[in-house]
Computed example of a mutant assay.
Amino acid sequence: MQNQNSLFFKCFKARYFPRCQFLDAAVSPNCSYVWRSIVAAIPILRSGSCWRVGNGESIKVFVDKWIPNYPSNRLLHPVHEGEEDWRVSDLIDLDLHGWRRDAIMATFNREDAEVICKIPLSHRRVADVVVWLHNKEGAYTVKSRYHVARKVLREWAESSTGAGQQLWKKLWKIRVPNKMKRAPETVIHAIWECPAAQDVWAAGMEIFVVQAWTVWNQRNSMVHGRQMKHPCWLNKRAADYMEEYRIAQEQLVVLNTISSGHHWQPPPQNMYKLNFDAAVFMEQQCSGVGAIIRNAQGEVMAGMSAKGSYVRDSEEAQALACRQAVVFTFYHGSWIFRACS
C-alpha cells in the first residue's frame, strides 16, 4: 500500500485489482493462497486506516474514510442526490492550494463542512496516501493491528447473523461431547477479556512470544542442515533473551535521562538551525506559530510569527508549525539547516 512502485505491488495490482484500490480488492477465482491470505486481512486494514488528503484524486467523498479526528472518519450527514461520484479533488482549489470553502459550505451540512475546511492541504500536488489511524506516525504496526483485530473479531463474534451464525451452526454439528460446545460467554471474552485470562496473558505472553521465536529459529536452522537443540536449551535461551532485553531497556532509560537537557545547542559551522514552536489558544479559537533561524554563533538570521487556524491538540499544532517553518525557510533563500521543535 505504501510502496506502490515496488515490483510486488505492481504484479499483484495487475493480476488481482487492476481497476480499484487495494482496500476495495476481493478474492478472485483461482487466485493464489498468498492473495487469499492478504485479502483476509483487508477488513482489519480498512477498519484501522484512513486516507490522508493530497491532491484528492483517489478519494471518493461519500464512500472513503478521509476526515481525521471525526466519528467514522466519513461524512455524517447526507447531501443532495447526483453527487455520489464526487472526488475530494473536486473540493480543492488547485491554484490557491486550499479548499473551495464557498462551494463546500453550500453543499454540505455545516458540521461536516467546517471539519472539511480544517483539514490541512499540501502546497505541492502530492498523491493521496492511506495512513494507519492507531499510531501517531500513521505507520502500521503489529501491536496496533492486534487491538484493531480484537475489536473487529469481537463485533463479528457477537453478531447473530451472517457468517457468525453459520459458524455456530457448524460448531453444534461437530461430533464432540456437548460440554465442549457449550459457550456461556463469548470466545473473545473467555480468551482475552476475562480478568482471569488477562492475568495469565500478562504473566506469560512475553516469554511465550520469545519461546515461539526460538522454536521458529530452531526450525529454520534444521532446514539449513544444523543440528536440533535440546528443548531445555531453547527455554534457557528464551529466558536469556528476555533478561538481555530488560537490561538493554534499563540502560536506554538511563541514557535518555542523562541527555534530556533543554539548552540550545548551536549547529556546526557553515550551517543554520531552525527552531519552531506552536501554541493553541482555546478561547480565541486559533493557533500561533513561531520560528527562528540562527547560525553557529547564535546570531539570529531570520524570524517569524503568525496566527493560524484552530486545531484540536498540540500534536496537530506542532505538525502545522513544522510545515509553516519549513516554507518560511525556503522563502528566505537556500539554507543548509537542522530543524528542531
Rank of each mutant, 00 (worst) to 15 (best):
M1S: 11
Q2M: 10
L7H: 13
F8M: 10
C11L: 14
C11T: 13
K13D: 03
K13E: 11
A14M: 06
R15S: 06
F17H: 03
R19K: 10
R19S: 08
C20T: 15
A25W: 12
A25D: 06
A25Q: 08
N30L: 05
C31E: 12
Y33C: 10
W35E: 02
R36H: 11
I38N: 01
A41R: 02
I42H: 04
R46E: 07
G48P: 00
C50T: 11
W51C: 03
G54M: 07
I59M: 04
K60G: 00
V61F: 01
K65A: 02
W66M: 02
I67P: 03
Y70R: 03
R74P: 00
L75D: 03
P78L: 12
V79R: 09
E84C: 03
R87I: 04
S89V: 05
L94T: 07
D95W: 00
R101V: 12
I104E: 15
E111S: 14
A113Q: 08
P120Q: 05
L121G: 05
H123Y: 08
A127E: 15
D128M: 00
T141Q: 09
K143P: 00
V148Q: 03
V148M: 03
K151C: 04
R154K: 13
S160Q: 10
G162V: 01
G164N: 11
Q165P: 01
Q166N: 09
K169T: 10
L171I: 15
A190V: 05
I191W: 04
C194L: 04
C194G: 06
P195F: 05
A196E: 12
A197T: 04
D199L: 14
A203E: 09
G204S: 08
I207M: 11
F208R: 13
V209K: 10
W213S: 06
T214Q: 12
N217P: 01
Q218C: 10
H224S: 09
M228Q: 14
C232D: 11
L234P: 07
N235A: 10
E250I: 07
L255S: 11
N256F: 08
S260Q: 14
H263K: 14
Q265R: 15
P268V: 13
Q269C: 09
M271H: 13
M271T: 14
F276C: 05
F276G: 01
M282T: 15
E283L: 15
E283F: 13
E283Y: 15
Q285G: 11
A291Q: 04
A291N: 02
I292N: 06
I292G: 02
I293Q: 01
R294V: 09
G298L: 06
E299R: 10
V300L: 10
V300T: 15
A302D: 12
G303V: 11
S314I: 15
E316D: 09
A319H: 03
A321T: 02
A321P: 03
C322F: 11
Q324V: 08
Q324I: 07
V326G: 03
F328G: 00
F328Q: 01
Y331I: 04
H332Q: 07
S334W: 00
I336T: 12
F337I: 01
C340N: 08
C340P: 00
